[in-house]
Design a binder for these strands. Structure first.
Lengths: 107, 107
DNA sequence: TAAATAAGATACCTTATGGTATTCTATTTA
DNA sequence: TAAATAGAATACCATAAGGTATCTTATTTA
């Protein structure tokens, strides 16, 4: 079985608001242990832990066990994959916005 | 109830390979009817129709009924939302790549 | 060293997701 | 006008996703 096919589903990892918020939180600080991240959500620790596991599998975060806590830090390199995907479509929506502006100017 | 909250889940719409492939297909051609899109997948017409409905709700495609067929065309403006989100993190992964390059040069 | 804390591992539950098959209606085409 | 085609609407099903509660283990701290 190919493990890599299961790991790294970047788009799916980002499709959840809890996970996006977790990433956001990790931009402010160098690293955060699970229990501190959990504080900012209304769900239990197990649920947050699962979300971070998904982010970890998609290579968005790096987990490091220090003492009794597991600290997470951002690894934004995975976002490059999405960045590249989006930029392919960039031309399409930029054309549309340009056309729209032209239309508004005519009025 | 706020309909807009349900509509337009842009990240979720893009989290599925069938839907991403559909978007891809619509970049090549001006518009495509459902049955033509269906040909490129191994699932039934109903399933593809559902996927396009999700893309439509997220404002990624525009559906137009012409005769007995429903034609879809790309509306890439919704991708701007993801583009904006990603670009926030751009700095983070660019720094990492730069650090990595520096590390490789030292060897 | 006893108590508290952090979090992994399970088991479990409910709902969402991605698909099928079937029926129905509207529109072409032979 | 009869037959074929496109697709919407439903009903349905299996699995995945997102959550909980509980138990266990390792690490701090009083």
């Amino acid at each position: 079985m190919d493990d890599i096919s299961q790991l790294r589903d970047v788009y799916n990892a980002v499709a959840n608001p809890t996970r996006r918020k977790s990433l956001q939180m990790l931009t402010d600080v160098e690293e955060l242990p699970l229990h501190e991240i959990t504080v900012y959500f209304q769900m239990g620790r197990t649920a947050v832990s699962k979300h971070l596991a998904i982010l970890k599998d998609a290579d968005f975060v790096i987990a490091q066990r220090v003492g009794r806590e597991t600290r997470y830090r951002l690894n934004a390199t995975s976002l490059k994959e999405i960045q590249d995907w989006v930029s392919f479509y960039e031309g399409f929506w930029k054309v549309r916005v340009a056309k729209l502006n032209l239309l508004l100017e005519k009025k």
